[in-house]
């Protein structure tokens, strides 16, 4: 069938950045985790780096619009993400992989991704094809009809990534997508991220510095709920000198940028 380009696809975006935050304050429970964060993210792969507890997961949840900011402004795909309503339209174009995601054990991979496609309001006629495409892209085609409970950790992660990209998102949020993947799968994921990053705003949270060096066009470095650094991987590498610990230039740069404010509470 001849593919028609819809008006929605040709419409100008109406926003300069997929994500724009100013003075953003986020709370996990009663604790303020992120405070005074200013951020603008456009198309490309943005690596979100930082030590454990820096607020990466909380920030990603806010970007996924499941956590309402406690203060400041946050615009996602040109819509304010601070209210209780008006989220439906931007959410159709967001893909989100939480750090720990649950699933129904008896569902097959295909059923899981199809169910998520339904929840994301992918038009019914497109669901089977979109599902197959997403499963193909993460390399799970041979497991598509296996039950979720039979998958290994790395395969589950990939099924999670498949559900995140099933609606062809404009903003893709992946929280620790490389956990549990073996080295070859990580290389494949980086390639996928680079492909997606050509026309999508991808935010990948990770604590593996080498992932960022290999796949990301931009890096956000967070520590203690603040943005310490925003730039390119090359700029991070340039910040480090031989006196900083680390095995690669980017690791030394990471150590250098985080070392400035002395981390409290032990050597870890």
């Amino acid at each position: 069938m001849t593919r028609l380009v819809g008006a929605a696809e040709l419409a100008p975006a109406g926003y300069a950045f997929e994500v724009r935050a100013a003075g953003l304050r986020l709370q996990a429970g009663r604790r303020t985790v992120v405070d005074g964060l200013d951020l603008s993210l456009g198309t490309g792969v943005h690596g979100l780096l930082g030590p454990n507890g820096a607020g990466k997961t909380t920030l990603i949840r806010a970007l996924a619009t499941v956590l309402r900011p406690a203060g400041g402004t946050l615009e996602v795909l040109g819509r304010p993400a601070t209210g209780r309503t008006g989220l439906r339209e931007p959410r159709r174009r967001i893909g989100y992989l939480p750090q720990e995601f649950g699933y129904y054990r008896r569902f097959t991979v295909r059923e899981f991704v199809e169910y998520m496609a339904w929840l994301k309001e992918v038009p019914g006629a497109d669901v089977p094809a979109a599902t197959q495409r997403a499963i193909d892209r993460v390399g799970l085609a041979d497991r598509a009809d296996h039950r979720m409970k039979t998958l290994s950790g790395g395969m589950l992660r990939r099924a999670g990534i498949a559900q995140a990209i099933v609606n062809d998102p404009v903003l893709l949020l992946l929280d620790e997508p490389t956990v549990g993947l073996d080295p070859a799968q990580r290389v494949r994921l980086r390639e996928l991220l680079q492909t997606l990053g050509a026309d999508t705003c991808v935010v990948v949270s990770t604590h593996l510095v080498e992932d960022v060096a290999a796949a990301c066009t931009g890096v956000l470095l967070m520590a203690d709920g603040r943005l310490v650094f925003q730039g390119t991987p090359a700029e991070i590498a340039a910040a480090g000198g031989p006196e900083h610990p680390g095995d690669s230039p980017i690791e030394r740069g990471y150590a250098a940028l985080l070392a400035r404010p002395e981390p409290a509470g032990g050597t870890w």
Partner: peptide, 18 residues
């Protein structure tokens, strides 16, 4: 109770209709 809660909560269908 629902293992998929976080995934579902982030989708457009989440909310009162669901």
């Amino acid at each position: 109770a629902d293992p998929m809660h976080e995934l579902v909560a982030a989708t457009p269908r989440a909310g009162l209709p669901l």
